[in-house]
Design a protein around this nucleic acid. Structure first.
Length: 420
RNA sequence: GUGGGUGUAGCUCAGUUGGUUAGAGCGCCGGAUUGUGGAUCCGGAGGUCGCGGGUUCGAAACCCGUCAUCCACCCCA
């Protein structure tokens, strides 16, 4: 048996309704906030990701699906959506379009990680990117959209955490202070964090090991090294969130894993998600467009993990939207089978959903299938009916039956379906 | 990449210190009802015990290896 690839899942028909519900909700809110859909390729030139995400990040160092094209160039399955979106923004000179460029996207992302609860190798994200506006209200707009979508889906136990990473210059002046502090207590940090002191000291703040947490509790804070401009900007964002009543909590430890973030960063976490508890996250990335050789462009965005949302989505959220009435065609016998095929087609042509199971040859098995398929009505069509030029419509709930003329089936059936 | 758990029927799982023919519930098929579904009753089908080796008179069980899967570390959505 050929199996699917490790960490890559099939979504069977039983689960696609909840995915459609999530996608439709996200689309609806994105539309209300003035974001427009963009569809970008699932693979790009490798250097795009290396330059945007950061060459020393885990994603780029050991998690990308990279392969050689036939001409020898290096391509990579996208591990996230921002890089490609920004590439498209630059390539199509969207900076010249005189309105804010606000995009959203859906799609699969690929990272070679060890699968576990809430983590797959092919997973799906919904994300938005707001390009061109260096205004705290743009941050508020993006965060509000994220919060509205998750709240509207009925997800419970969510927390919005937010932090200010400041400008690159702020972090440059802060980093030596932090490193000096960490060096003092190097021996009591976990092995990982000892390595991080050189590679990425800010990530030590995000470590979950209790000893490291205790150590960093009294570490110098980035917040104290921030420039006035960065502090003023962040104050503007928080004020905006207050004004529109989006609940948040400050988390000075919140450091994102991608290099391109600055100023506002945020993350929504959920209880009941296991170890991978981030549902969605994002932040401002004012330098990225320039890094990729585009014009200076402020920007902010987020991405949410659709698998994680699907895990959290309460069953009650999938309110059974009054399903279409489906007619089951129970056609059997030499003549009934043939007439049944045209009855199916006639109903469908007039907009009535109709199904049948062609394996069934007796009325009994047909009715059983109609029941399993939860069809509201069954059209019984055997040789006797064909002789009389009629068909019997059975209401599967009330069990009442009506004789209908075969010659005008769709017309005769309509009012009976509606009255149910 | 590292660590741990679990692999027995379509599904969820039992299976005694190693001992006859490997079980249950649900599901499936058929009959009671030869043209009327769900409920009930009766009957039936369905298993290379993940795979490969080893120990043993004898292995689903013990040992080694391997694969798959889940969870955690790490990392992240």
């Amino acid at each position: 048996m050929i199996r699917g690839i490790k960490g890559v899942k099939d979504l069977l028909p039983e689960e696609t309704p909840r995915w459609r519900f999530i996608e439709e909700t996200a689309r609806r809110w994105a539309d209300r906030y003035g974001f427009h859909e963009i569809r970008i390729p699932i693979f790009e030139v490798t250097t795009l990701f290396a330059r945007s995400i950061g060459a020393s990040t885990d994603i780029v160092e050991k998690e990308m699906y990279t392969f050689q094209d036939r001409d020898g160039s290096s391509l990579t399955l996208r591990p996230e959506g921002t890089a490609g979106t920004v590439r498209a923004y630059i390539e199509h000179n969207r900076a010249a379009v005189p309105v804010p460029q606000k995009y959203f996207y859906f799609g699969p992302m690929f990272r070679h990680e060890r699968p576990q609860a809430g983590r797959l190798r092919q997973f799906h994200q919904f994300g938005v990117e707001s390009l061109g506006m260096a205004d705290p209200r743009a941050d508020v707009e993006v965060i509000a959209l994220l919060w509205r979508i998750l709240s509207n889906l009925g997800l419970q136990g969510l927390t919005l955490e937010i932090n200010n990473l400041g400008y690159p210059a702020d972090r440059d002046s802060y980093r030596p202070h932090l490193v000096t502090y960490l060096r003092q207590y190097e021996s009591s940090l976990c092995a990982n964090c000892q390595r991080r002191i050189e590679a990425n000291p800010l990530r030590v703040l995000d470590c979950k090991v209790p000893e490291c947490r205790a150590m960093t509790e009294t570490a110098p804070r980035l917040a104290d090294s921030l420039s006035e401009a960065a502090q003023a900007y962040f104050t503007g964002v928080l004020h905006g969130l207050d004004v529109i009543h989006i609940p948040y909590s400050l988390n000075h430890r919140l450091v994102r894993g991608l290099d391109y973030y600055n100023l506002t960063t945020f993350e929504v976490t959920a209880t009941n998600l296991g170890a991978q508890n981030a549902v969605g996250a994002g932040g401002r990335y004012d330098g990225l467009v320039e890094t990729l050789s585009g014009p200076p462009t402020p920007a902010i965005g987020f991405a949410v993990g659709l698998e994680r949302i699907a895990m959290l989505l309460p069953e009650s959220a999938l309110r059974t939207t009054a399903a279409n009435v489906v007619v089951y065609i129970a056609a059997f016998g030499d003549q009934g089978s043939g007439v049944g095929l045209s009855a199916l087609e006639d109903l469908r042509a007039s907009g009535i959903p109709a199904v049948s199971d062609f394996r069934s040859s007796t009325l009994k098995s047909h009715l059983r299938q109609a029941d399993r398929l939860a069809c509201g009505f069954t059209l019984i069509l055997g040789d006797d009916e064909v002789q009389k030029g009629t068909a019997i419509l059975r209401n599967m709930v009330t069990k009442s039956q009506y004789d209908l003329p075969l010659s005008s089936l769709p017309v005769a059936i309509q009012p009976l379906l509606r009255s149910s």
